[in-house]
Nucleic acid binder design. Structure first.
Lengths: 352, 352
DNA sequence: CGTATATTTGTGCACGAACACAACAGAAGT
DNA sequence: ACTTCTGTTGTGTTCGTGCACAAATATACG
């Protein structure tokens, strides 16, 4: 274990004072080009590493982050994300970080815009965004860039803001796994239903689209011919009945994949349709889905570690603001967890 | 966010000096019963939390841990555990921790005993053990307890050392998941092979036994009748041929579960037997298994996050030694990950 | 050239816990 | 009563960094 070099030593090597090194390290400016160069030269040679602990101790100023997501409801996906944020705050409880949670209606782009505008009125040091509406988010991010406020995404990335750090999962891969599992269940002649559960006229989320593409690519690549049946479960009780009818009539359906986190609704429909034999695959370990997994009405859930996303988003933002590091989590593709009844108990709040 | 109380304030409240509070917090002794009581009373009321950062800064002494495992080989399971240990050391790079890796032959209990004896000759502050031999480990732990050296287990627990912290996965649940996946693949009349891969006369590991029990309990509970076929793959090429013959003859076998991390060997046997149709389920994301998953010769792997185990073992040991906390990770059951070709790329070295 | 202003640079204190050490009290022994 | 010993208690220094402030230097301008 090589001893870590300290700021004072660097100062000595560069022929400057510790204060100047500090200014260079934190991009505080007010450093003459010559000294800047001298310090940076030394830095590049010695491989300085911030001492997280002492930094935290002497840090005086506080930081305020915004965490912008669709509506948080107890036990839902965004609640889990928020829990990860909370855990990160706990880990950094002795440096002053305040995280303000802001929510928008994921079915209403004006509410999202309003949320973004309000955010621009606040004094914040960093923003974590769970994007839904591409164009609105993009213009918001552009304004943040202009103001030099760092931001990053969780849950999904945004096209056009490509170099932004994102913590999400590969939804296409999720789709392919779902397809594979559903396929395992099917004997010849049996079929797979792909269910879109959402409101009427609702714009489909990018995640949902990517998942479906993943499903299609699985069947394209594997050359299997389980013809896919599509059905849409609309968010009103009448159309629930319609989907119920669908499952009653299509006895050849052996597996069903629900493209969003509302698998529990389809589980309910299947129950009413008397189709307990259908193997149901859903997404996200929400409280409602969890119950279905326990009782067996959902066979498997593909999960994206929302806690980890929130947790590392905060951690990364801290890294950027306090230590100017952007590299370590650049890609940030979070593992995809496949949860079934048996391993369910071990996917808890705690981040392992 | 309530402001954290500091040692000085506690001292004031208890009518003692900061030094005395420090002595109480760290069980350093030499505190009169009256003052001890006074301090503890205040402590119980205010809920003091160690400031990790300041502790780390002012910490002068170093700590030495032992990490005792079966042989580490590049890319194997223990290598992954060690990588988690390395990551923890990186996280705590500014407090002086030295971790010595010690290996024993997992097929030879005398080598394990020798390893333990050597360990007792060294000056260490804490020990992390990956247990294989129950009795040997137990007596080693008893000696460690006598010397008041904290220890904990990774990968598996040890019967009789029940209150010891363990980071492992529920192997029974692993077995049930494997059984469920294998079962999904089977149509009526088709069968599942359970493969024990190991040396001749080799004592079966507790993990392997627990997994098999999990498989059996799945079929007992589900009432399904896929008759299980057992075969043992011995570690010598002649018997490889024997197993190859087994798969050639039993065309009704549709899925196979390998009970340890040597799934890649069975994948090889299946290839030679011309049984690419058999759905192979294995354990642990080792380098060799990873390759099989990529090329499709293994369908799924059940993994136990070895990195996390090593990582949290170190983190916990630090917590115990430096801050006297034992509670937070007491149970420490790590999630079981189900890895297939599609989500494989996202299970990397980095702990998320 | 002198003064005012802006920019650069160095110094010193604060942060909170760990721990060495000095100071002190009380008991025991002479 | 005085010394010695033992156990208890408080004080002060230390760690490496952040940041305020003072000091020094450079630049602008009349």
């Amino acid at each position: 274990m090589a001893k870590q070099i300290k700021i004072k030593e660097i100062a000595q090597l560069a022929g400057v004072s510790a204060g100047t090194v500090d200014r260079v390290l934190h991009n505080r400016g007010n450093v003459s080009p010559e000294k800047l160069e001298a310090v940076e030269k030394v830095l590049s040679q010695v491989g300085y590493k911030f001492n997280l602990h002492t930094s935290a101790v002497s840090l005086k100023r506080g930081y305020r982050f915004l965490f912008i997501t669709p509506q948080v409801q107890p036990g839902n996906y965004w609640d889990a994300q928020k829990d990860g944020v909370r855990q990160a705050m706990e880990e950094y409880s002795d440096i002053h970080i305040e995280i303000l949670s802001r929510e928008y209606d994921q079915f209403d782009h004006t509410s999202c815009e309003a949320c973004f505008n309000a955010a621009l009125g606040e004094e914040v040091d960093g923003v974590i965004i769970a994007p839904t509406f591409q164009t609105e988010t993009l213009s918001f991010c552009r304004e943040l860039s202009r103001r030099k406020i760092p931001f990053l995404f969780v849950d999904a990335s945004v096209e056009g803001a490509d170099n932004a750090i994102t913590f999400c999962t590969d939804q296409n891969a999720c789709g392919r796994i779902a397809a594979r599992l559903a396929d395992w269940h099917c004997r010849s002649g049996e079929k797979i239903a792909v269910v879109h559960s959402g409101r009427k006229n609702q714009q489909r989320s990018t995640n949902s689209i990517a998942r479906e593409q993943g499903i299609l690519s699985y069947f394209r690549e594997s050359g299997r011919e389980n013809i896919l049946l599509h059905t849409t479960l609309k968010q009103s009780s009448e159309v629930f009945a319609e989907t119920e009818e669908f499952f009653r009539q299509h006895g050849e359906v052996r597996s069903a994949i629900v493209l969003n986190s509302r698998g529990y609704q389809v589980a309910d429909v299947l129950r009413r349709a008397g189709r307990k034999d259908v193997c149901l695959i859903g997404f996200d370990l929400t409280a409602l889905n969890r119950r279905c997994l326990e009782e067996g009405s959902i066979a498997a859930l593909l999960c994206q570690r929302p806690q980890s996303q929130g947790f590392y988003a905060v951690k990364t933002l801290i890294g950027i603001l306090l230590y100017g590091k952007t590299d370590p989590y650049q890609t940030g593709l979070i593992p995809i967890d496949l949860v079934m009844k048996e391993n369910l108990p071990y996917y808890r709040e705690v981040i392992f």
